[in-house]
Amino acid sequence: MKVLVINPGSTSTKVAIYENERCIFLETYEHSPEELAKCETLMDQEPLRRNCILSALEKAGFKIEDFDAIAARGGILPPLESGTYVVDERMVNYLKHESPVKHVSNLACVIAYELANGKVPVYTTDPVSVDEMVPEARFSGIPEIERKSLSHALNIKIVCRKVATELSKALEELNAVVAHLGGGISIAAVEKGKIIDVNNANDEGPFSPERTGELPVGDVVRMCFSGKYTKDELKKKFVGRGGLVAYLGTNDLRKALEMAKKDRNALLVVKAMAYQIAKEIGGMCAVLKGKVDAIILTGGMAHSNEFVEMIKEHVYKFAPIFVLPGEFEMEALALGTLRVMKGEEKAKIWGGPNG
């Protein structure tokens, strides 16, 4: 079985071809800021991204008709169950016109559906808006504000599958705390395979390379009414120019660690980020009542042994630690689609925004 996998990122478009569980082709197209600036809206990037995918297929010697299915990264949909979903016209229209967050992931299903043109089925697995949170986790302290489940669900789920296999367990038997450490950070409590609590990677949890994470709310209110910033400037300050960028002028952990060798303040900033990550991991261990089979560190920052050790020294007594650096999104999308095609899992049908 051949599966085409499509995954647009903020400055790149990834294309992969899987033959059963084996990746036989992988290409990443980088997009310059100047190239993206020509697109007035997010959906205006569609032709640019689609042409990259067609170029990749030409390079690999494939046509759309050669595939048994297309697997596309999931966009910002309303809260839904974990699993693999059929991408249909209703979902595409929502992502194009109604999604509340204009996120680059919204492009994937739209492009895949149009490329398929009814010739091959299109699926998406574990979108960002997977919501399995327990009722207690939704309370914020203000009735008007409910905590939301927006996380790196796709990567969280696949690393849980990998570790469950290593522990000779089924996913549904695994209790784990997963820390996805990238430009944004998601730290999830996974109980019996379900993400029962997780920080919103945009505005909760530890600070990250370019996001502030949680902030003292009183000071945020004062900033909002100081007259110094517009709403958009503040949003950018919190997401995009926060975290390591705000303290050290870089969103690259490798550069921050190099700075830390010569600058005690830079070292303190990096240690503070590891400290906050460890504190959040500890909190999620409490959510699981201490019944934790594994702590899993994944995402780009997990490539740094030095940074991983900073986290480990705080949490090593809680549970065995597994380090799976990088992200496995392409594999997760392909395997989710293959499970459906092989009859191991039933594809879900999205019921619409109120379904």
Rank of each mutant, 00 (worst) to 15 (best):
L4F: 02
L4N: 07
I6V: 13
N7S: 06
T13L: 07
A16E: 01
I17P: 06
E19F: 14
N20V: 13
E21C: 01
E21G: 11
R22C: 14
C23V: 04
I24M: 06
F25V: 03
T28V: 14
P33A: 04
E34L: 05
E34A: 06
K38C: 15
K38H: 15
E40T: 15
T41F: 15
T41Q: 13
M43D: 14
L48Q: 03
R50D: 09
R50P: 09
C52K: 13
C52E: 08
I53A: 06
L54A: 04
L57D: 08
A60K: 00
K63L: 14
K63P: 00
D66C: 07
D66S: 05
D68L: 12
R73G: 13
E81T: 12
G83E: 09
M91L: 12
K96P: 14
H97K: 15
V101F: 09
K102R: 00
H103R: 03
V104F: 08
N106S: 03
C109N: 08
V110Y: 08
V110Q: 01
I111Q: 08
L115C: 12
L115D: 12
G118D: 08
G118V: 11
K119H: 09
V122K: 04
D126S: 14
V128I: 07
S129L: 02
P135K: 02
S140A: 10
P143F: 06
E146K: 13
R147I: 04
L150F: 10
S151M: 13
A153N: 07
I158T: 03
R161C: 13
K162G: 00
V163A: 06
L171N: 04
L171C: 02
E173N: 11
L174S: 11
A179G: 07
A179D: 07
A179R: 03
L181E: 07
I185V: 11
K192S: 12
K192T: 10
K192I: 05
K194G: 03
I196E: 03
I196R: 00
N200E: 09
A201Q: 10
A201Y: 15
A201H: 11
D203Y: 14
P206Y: 05
S208I: 03
S208D: 02
S208K: 11
R211A: 01
E214W: 11
V220A: 01
V221S: 01
M223N: 03
F225S: 11
K228R: 10
E233V: 03
L234E: 02
K235V: 01
K237A: 14
F238P: 01
F238C: 07
G242R: 11
Y247H: 14
G249P: 04
N251F: 01
D252N: 07
E258N: 13
A260S: 15
V270P: 07
A274P: 06
A278K: 07
I281S: 02
G282M: 13
M284G: 04
K289V: 06
L297P: 02
T298H: 02
H303K: 15
E306G: 09
E309P: 03
Y316G: 00
F318N: 05
F318K: 10
F322P: 09
V323R: 02
E329R: 00
A334C: 09
A334F: 12
T337A: 14
T337D: 05
T337L: 11
M341L: 15
K346V: 15
G351N: 10
G352F: 05
N354G: 05
G355N: 08
